[in-house]
């Protein structure tokens, strides 16, 4: 009853089927990018993608996920290359960052449905609560991401993780290349 895909990998959770997806992801799979903020589906910090829909994982049980495809922030891209992630850095959206995984997942789901969303569509899709006050940048970041998705603009705002020391040294003169073995 609790078999489904998480970030393209098959998983069976040996947990109470009534367990909200959020806690299976966080406490069993150690996918901690998805955050707990309220447990009642109000804040959106736990938003994940289930079969293309932005869903608040604190109010979905793992039983309800049977056979479905769940994508978390960790699975959105392998290297921070998703246009929403890149736009989020280009527009310097995050502050404390705690609500941002949910924001990014909601924005990515919106852009999959609507390649050029209106303000009203953005407002309707982005109902996540942020206390640091990142709202003034969110519409702009979503529009930027939509232009990138449509191929009108290119972005390289955030580096991929795991840059090799030799590659870093090639780009940055003051870094010393590691000794060859």
């Amino acid at each position: 009853m609790t078999k489904f895909s998480v970030n393209d990998r098959p998983v069976e959770y040996r947990m109470d089927p009534e367990t909200p997806l959020l806690w299976a992801l966080r406490d069993a799979s150690n996918l901690t990018g998805t955050k707990y903020g309220c447990g009642t589906g109000e804040c959106g910090a736990c938003t994940v993608d289930i079969d293309g829909e932005a869903i608040r994982s604190c109010i979905v049980t793992i039983a309800e996920c049977e056979g479905r495809f769940v994508t978390t922030i960790e699975g959105l891209s392998r290297d921070r290359s998703h246009p929403v992630q890149q736009a989020w850095v280009a527009e310097q959206v995050p502050q404390c960052g705690f609500c941002q995984s949910g924001m990014i997942m909601a924005a990515a789901a919106l852009l999959r449905k609507s390649s050029n969303p209106s303000d009203a569509e953005i407002d309707a899709a982005m109902t996540n609560i942020c206390r640091c006050g990142t709202y003034p940048r969110i519409r702009g970041a979503i529009r930027l991401a939509s232009r990138v998705l449509r191929g009108e603009e290119k972005l390289a705002a955030a580096p991929p993780p795991g840059i090799r020391p030799e590659d870093a040294a090639r780009a940055v003169p003051s870094l010393k290349p590691p000794a060859r073995r």
Binding site: G33, I73, I104
Partner: peptide
């Protein structure tokens, strides 16, 4: 801190 705040890490 932004790169780590957009990929959940």
């Amino acid at each position: 801190d932004l790169p780590a705040k957009i990929d959940g890490s």
